[in-house]
């Protein structure tokens, strides 16, 4: 019974079944299985999707739809984990968002999903995120990494403003900063004092691991 429901949960991700995700997650919790086991199958499944995306077997629509399944299922599983006083392990905590003035979400969403698939805990602040909200999240979440996306040349400098804000608030040494987006390059990342730059979403994950000293 338990393995059946775990298989069903895993398949919601592998089959991109957004519509059933909530019901099956609730069913899993109601069945009394260990919610950490439920979280683990979801993570395994998104890792499969992430790997297939990385190898070119799957594409962006599949990655995004699998990510949508997680957004539906995870709050239910997480609630059960918290109710039991349990805690998930992760490679590290990442706060991610698209900077203020910029409403592009695709690239940021890809990085968030792949980071999650790789085993990071990801706090996605969304798009058009104000500098003060990045700083607040880094502080409150005690983040290991801050990842910022900017798709417009006019908003790229907002990444610098946030880094300056980290310095001003005495947070810069506590968090590694990764930047990305089409107008960004290594030269720009260096010039604004970022720790890493990823030209692609998979590269962003590799850099996150490298910055935290995680073996790849």
């Amino acid at each position: 019974m338990n393995s059946d429901i775990l298989d069903q949960l895993k398949n919601t991700v592998l089959e991109f079944d957004i519509d059933s995700a909530e019901d099956i997650a609730k069913k899993a919790v109601d069945s009394g299985i260990d919610p950490l086991a439920a979280a683990a199958v979801l993570t395994d499944a998104i890792r499969v999707i992430g790997n297939k995306f990385g190898s070119g077997e799957l594409f962006l629509p599949e990655l995004v739809c699998a990510s949508e399944v997680l957004k539906k299922a995870f709050p239910i599983i997480n609630e059960a984990i918290e109710a039991k006083g349990q805690k998930q392990t992760s490679l590290g905590k990442v706060v991610i968002g698209t900077v203020f003035g910029d409403i592009h979400s695709i690239g940021k969403g890809m990085v968030a999903t792949l980071l999650y698939a790789a085993g990071f805990e990801v706090i996605d602040l969304g798009i058009n995120v104000k500098g003060e909200d990045f700083l607040k999240a880094v502080k409150e979440q005690n983040a290991d990494i801050l990842a910022m996306s900017a798709l417009l040349t006019t908003t790229a400098m907002e990444q610098k403003n946030v880094i300056e804000g980290l310095k001003k608030d005495g947070l810069r040494d506590r968090v590694k900063v990764i930047v990305g987006g089409s107008p960004i390059n290594q030269e720009f990342a260096d010039s604004i004092g970022a720790d890493g730059y990823g030209a692609t979403a998979p590269e962003g994950v590799r850099i996150a691991k490298r910055l935290l000293g995680i073996e790849q």
């Binding site: 962006l60 629509p61 695709i106 089409s182």
Partner: peptide, 8 residues
């Protein structure tokens, strides 16, 4: 159109 590998 969208590049379905990169989103570009």
């Amino acid at each position: 159109a969208m590049n379905m590998t990169t989103g570009d």
